[in-house]
Design a binder for these strands. Sequence first.
DNA 1: TTACGATCTACAGTCACTGTAGGAGCAAGC
DNA 2: GCTTGCTCCTACAGTGACTGTAGATCGTAA
Lengths: 137, 137
Amino acid sequence: MIGDIAKRTGTKVNTIRFYEDIGLMPEAARTAGGRRTYGDAEVRQLAFIRHARDLGFSTDEIRSLIALSANPDQDCKEAGSLARRHLASVEDRIARLTALRNALADATRDCEGGRIADCRVMEAITMPADLDSGTRV
Amino acid sequence: MIGDIAKRTGTKVNTIRFYEDIGLMPEAARTAGGRRTYGDAEVRQLAFIRHARDLGFSTDEIRSLIALSANPDQDCKEAGSLARRHLASVEDRIARLTALRNALADATRDCEGGRIADCRVMEAITMPADLDSGTRV
DNA sequence: TTACGATCTACAGTCACTGTAGGAGCAAGC
DNA sequence: GCTTGCTCCTACAGTGACTGTAGATCGTAA
């Protein structure tokens, strides 16, 4: 039943139905009464989708990964290049988030009992280095 | 003009108008002909908004940060706690992205010339450790 | 004066869900 | 057998943060 697979994968029921709608999940088998049932393969697939989404893959990317894994005899190149493209953007995001973490850590430290006027949160976030200067535009 | 501030901050023109609509940017001054004009303060504010969005703050969070910075005499506590809450989630995201980076790096290495059947991309992403076992549900 | 690009408003579309309304299936208790 | 209460069903509207498009207007250079 959909509620069980939802609990086991930490996915909302409506989200699972949505994945079926857009073809990320196969059409579920039904009981006589019309309820969806799922086997281990579906649980694994849903878990894969959730992890991939969680880690920033778009549903289109996930769709192509699933399609690739459905033809295991074909060359791995395509999946590899998908992963490589993603790797670059993941590394970029890590770098930017690390910079933010430092800024936020500084900011919360500086903010202890201070006043906004002395607070670095905004400056830390803005980092105005990449702004052109100029007057009214 | 809106096109200039768009270029200087790397923001799309429609996005700037959208920020004005939802009150993230103040209502812009207009020329006689009705075109929006901006000063340095607006450029800085837009740059701040873009950085904050880029780094994962919601428009609501940004709105409250702007409101706080508009009353610099009030205590910094609120901005600090906002930053602290964000810090925790940023650190979590860094940890998860780092795990993904390693998985993707492994995956792309293992994939060189291999076949999907031997490929770790899916497994690396799925990490099925957090799945209950069971049959049909 | 005409052509062209930038800007204007207003609104529809996108992505990935999330929530809700109204009805049906189904096991447990009376 | 009937009610209660839960889960499930379909269908569709709403959300957040934009993005794109249509049709009109402004401003300037040829």
